[in-house]
């Protein structure tokens, strides 16, 4: 579904070149939920933007659904960290969710139904006429997720979507993502700085190094398909996997090989 081969990004700075991302190569199979973690500043967002076609790589390629990414790929949806600023305040919730659907050649009734369904899936049923700024932060992020879901993307890229949300809301939203993922079968690439979250959500966790960033480690999460905030997080297997990721990140911060 997503093939990243030797992708890298350099920036011109005073006195030379700063290599943010040196070379990353990995693949994400269709229907997988993969998390990407790494130390602060390791270029997680840069990587996501290159996969989303919002940033041109300096070298290497990303391929979505077999096609090279040289602009936002078809059938890809992105959920950003800044939920408040990604929704359009001049449109009500329903209109916000509906907007990306307008170029899909659907009838008005079909769009309306998709919007209603998406809002129901994120537990915001019936809120089409509410203004985005009348909602709490967590609810706004749900609207952004609903917007992505209604679009029925093949690939969903999420850039630290719950970083700015409180812990309890974050837990609910994590479960929402797993629920949507298992129901709709979307391929999800989930960027986060929260180690626990990456282990709880992902089937695989990709750990990045510090800049110039490369892939440090790839850890398979075999916690099974049914996960629960209480039971899963208190299982010994969870702690082991969590520790493994944590160790890799500490090593990455130290700059060890």
């Amino acid at each position: 579904m997503l093939e990243v081969a030797g992708i890298g990004k350099d920036y011109r700075v005073d006195g030379g070149v700063f290599t943010a991302v040196d070379s990353l190569s990995f693949h994400v199979a269709e229907g997988e939920l993969v998390c990407v973690v790494g130390p602060s500043g390791c270029g997680k967002t840069t990587l996501l933007r290159m996969c989303a076609g919002l940033l041109a790589p300096t070298r290497g390629t990303a391929r979505v659904d077999g096609r090279d990414v040289d602009g936002p790929p078809e059938g890809t949806a992105v959920v950003f960290q800044e939920y408040g600023r990604s929704l359009f305040p001049w449109m009500r919730v329903g209109a916000n969710v509906e907007l990306p659907l307008k170029r899909l050649g659907l009838t008005r009734a079909e769009r309306r139904d998709r919007v209603a369904e998406a809002l129901r899936l994120v537990d915001l049923e019936g809120k089409e006429q509410v203004w985005p700024w009348q909602l709490s932060g967590g609810m706004q992020q749900r609207v952004a997720i609903a917007r992505a879901v209604a679009f029925r993307p093949r690939l969903l890229l999420m850039d630290e979507p719950f970083a700015a949300v409180d812990a309890q809301t974050r837990a609910d939203l994590e479960d929402l993502i797993r629920d949507l993922w298992s129901r709709l079968g979307i391929t999800v690439v989930f960027i986060t700085h929260d180690i626990d979250e990456s282990v709880y959500l992902g089937q695989r966790v990709l750990v990045l190094s510090s800049p110039p960033t490369t892939l440090r480690a790839e850890i398979h999460i075999d916690l099974g398909p049914d996960r629960d905030q209480l039971d899963t997080r208190s299982a010994p297997a969870f702690a082991k996997l969590r520790a493994a990721v944590w160790r890799e990140i500490q090593a990455a911060k130290r700059g060890a090989a």
């Binding site: 989303a52 076609g53 919002l54 936002p72 078809e74 890809t76 949806a77 992105v78 950003f80 800044e82 600023r85 990604s86 359009f88 907007l99 990306p100 307008k102 170029r103 679009f151």
Partner: peptide, 17 residues
């Protein structure tokens, strides 16, 4: 808002829309 422009780009809304 740049995030809004990114959203529009990511969803391929097109220049006119």
């Amino acid at each position: 808002e740049p995030v809004q422009l990114d959203t529009a780009a990511a969803f391929r809304l097109g220049r006119n829309r």
